[in-house]
Design a protein around this nucleic acid. Structure first.
Lengths: 191, 191
DNA sequence: ATTTAGTAATTGAACGTTCATTCGGTTGCA
DNA sequence: TGCAACCGAATGAACGTTCAATTACTAAAT
């Protein structure tokens, strides 16, 4: 465990991530998080006011890390290539950071998300996706449908795929992946 | 199982569903479930051995109810119509039973699902979907891709749409819905 | 270069509460 | 009369949070 090498706050984040994945929000006491991160229980309260705040901050931390990864591409690529690239980067990131993926999923479908939703701060990732789809529509490459329709099909398929793979249902990963983004592209492109 | 018994058990189910949606797995004590269902705390333990078992049984109950609803269609419809019909029935059911939807989502992304996954019982819904997609592939109507690819895109888009709507992000519901299943169909159909 | 003082980080035992589960007793029905 | 359904106070373990005490760091003063 190289958790010790990170700074205390990140160690707490990483330990929380791991333990919540194994035992859920309710099944991971602060004392266990502290033990796993090699800090005292009280130390967590130096960085976070409560368990809820810790989980909220961890969610933002995970979301940022994910966004940093997927929007890191060559601007010169043609639209279709970027369409495939971003999707594949997202799937890659989630498959190599399954704990992040499942934590985000768990968070989104829990009552915690209500707390974030209130603050209508448009965050980096959504903005980026919006601009990307807008570009595709304006240039006539993809169909003129609402942003949320595009997000549903683009992100929805990616997360479903990751779920299938991590559940162990999906045998031929790479073939399925290629088929899947191909299907989305076919459905979304104009004509 | 007599009628009285069924009522109490269903009351417990419905109360658990409602409260877990509001406060999450951890935030809903057995005492609250009991109070909401108008039974004594001890009574829950007459029907279920533990809180975990209650949640597991509730999951199966929700999944069954959903499947009953979506596969209830006219066998004479042409394939494309059934493709649209089943998807719309699923979206309809989830939008009119949001608590069921969110409970299932919460369950799937929590460690609870591991407990169900172990028992490799193929259940009604998956069988039905498998046969439906197999028919489409064999008759050459939809592309020959793996079952899990089709499921990812078909179910993934439906759940993403329901999320968007219940989060309040998606304004023009019915237009988005039509666009969305249209996109999926375009992506999946042959040629 | 060393001291000093002030601040931030850290500790973990202790506290008070909450909650899942139990159990001895009661009710209602066959 | 017997048995299943039902009740809810009691139990005890677990957990989030607090806090008084300790250590580590920073930088100004000597």
């Amino acid at each position: 465990m190289n958790v010790q090498l990170l700074n205390k706050k990140e160690a707490i984040f990483e330990s929380t991530l791991k333990l919540i994945n194994e035992h859920g929000f309710h099944g991971t006491p602060m004392s266990q998080i502290a033990a796993h991160a090699n800090v005292a229980t009280g130390t967590i309260y130096h960085y976070f006011n409560s368990k809820d705040e810790l989980i909220l901050e961890l969610f933002k931390y995970c979301r940022e890390k994910t966004n940093e990864h997927i929007f890191n591409f060559d601007e010169d690529l043609v639209y279709k290539d970027r369409f495939f690239y971003i999707w594949n980067r997202l799937v890659d990131y989630y498959l190599t950071h399954k704990e992040t993926f499942w934590f985000i999923e768990q968070f989104y479908s829990s009552p915690y998300y209500e707390l974030i939703k209130q603050k209508k701060t448009t965050y980096y990732g959504v903005d980026k996706m919006y601009l990307f789809f807008e570009e595709g529509i304006k240039s006539g490459i993809i169909r003129n449908v609402s942003f949320y329709t595009l997000i549903s099909v683009y992100i929805g398929s990616a997360t479903s795929h990751v779920k299938m793979v991590t559940y162990g249902f999906c045998k031929m990963q790479s073939k399925s992946r290629e088929d899947l983004i191909e299907i989305i592209w076919n459905g979304v492109k104009n004509q």
